[in-house]
Write a protein that binds this DNA or RNA. Structure first.
Lengths: 153, 153
DNA sequence: CTCCTTATTGATAACCGTTATCAATAAGAT
DNA sequence: ATCTTATTGATAACGGTTATCAATAAGGAG
């Protein structure tokens, strides 16, 4: 257990190191926050939580770290239509999922209980697209829009 | 054929009027541009094309008009990850489609040749989600990410 | 057609998320 | 312990979008 309460994640050290990145306190703090939250936070929201752990960290560093983690494939950028980029960690516990977004309050529900049928069809769609358009597909993003229970009144 | 070359679209007049909106030259010009282009333009790009038709129109009006058209359901907002909102018209000729986005050059391919299987599954997924999460689904957005032929070198 | 109400417009400034700059700092190899 | 250089934080700048407000014009009433 290091100073940030980041216990089992020494793995990051190796991954970062392997890519030639240095392991720093701000980076550990950002990972610690994302690991705990598992929800869709904006850079500002992450910043607010990070400075509790490491008060000297600047907002710029948050943006830079998020940029780096996204490039490393450790986190996903999530756009839910509220004009800011949000981030979610791709841990082994949180699988690939789709998003259900309330167009009124912008609440997000993660949807990951895919049926075998759904999984197969997405695989098939991906292959079809690759063949038909001669592209290499690296991922997909699915959003369902609607009005959540709370906003329905 | 009115002054903007907008012939068969007098329908907009009725729709706008019905909602209590006035039919103005800037609005007709924006619709004219979107109708012609059918691709994913940013507000600035639309502005550049509009001022050819109506030189006195300001950028602010473009934003306001796009906001209105989106609210009316006449156009879609499209996010392709290049930090600007893009717009596409929902004409009867351009059906519902998904997007294939090159993560390198941000080119977008529309994908609308859905198989019956795909259509059925999306309908089923929508119903499942509505039941399971108690929400009213109004639409969905699907993006496939990859590297296009040109960027593959 | 003319008048009148009020939605709409355009110029400008403000806003806000994100990024560039740059001297100071510190990770980690030697 | 030293040294190279990636990283940092403060600040300013940037770019897309929105608020402000007086001037304009759509379109209904007469």
């Amino acid at each position: 257990m290091n100073r940030n309460g980041l216990g089992r994640n020494k793995g990051w050290h190796r991954i970062m190191h392997g890519r030639g990145f240095r392991v720093t306190a701000p980076r550990e703090a950002v990972l610690s926050v994302l690991e705990k939250e598992k929800t869709h936070l904006s850079a500002k929201e992450i910043y607010a939580k990070v400075i509790v752990i490491e008060p000297s960290v600047g907002l710029t560093t948050i943006y830079r770290t998020l940029e780096m983690l996204a490039e490393m494939g450790v986190i996903n950028r999530v756009e839910i239509g509220d004009k800011t980029t949000r981030y979610e960690i791709k841990s082994n516990s949180s699988k690939h999922h789709h998003h259900i977004i309330c167009t009124n309050c912008r609440k997000v529900i993660d949807y990951s209980e895919f049926s075998e049928e759904e999984k197969k069809l997405f695989t098939k769609m991906t292959k079809n697209i690759e063949k038909k358009y001669n592209v290499k597909i690296t991922g997909h993003n699915v959003q369902f829009f609607g009005i959540c229970l709370d906003c329905e009144k």
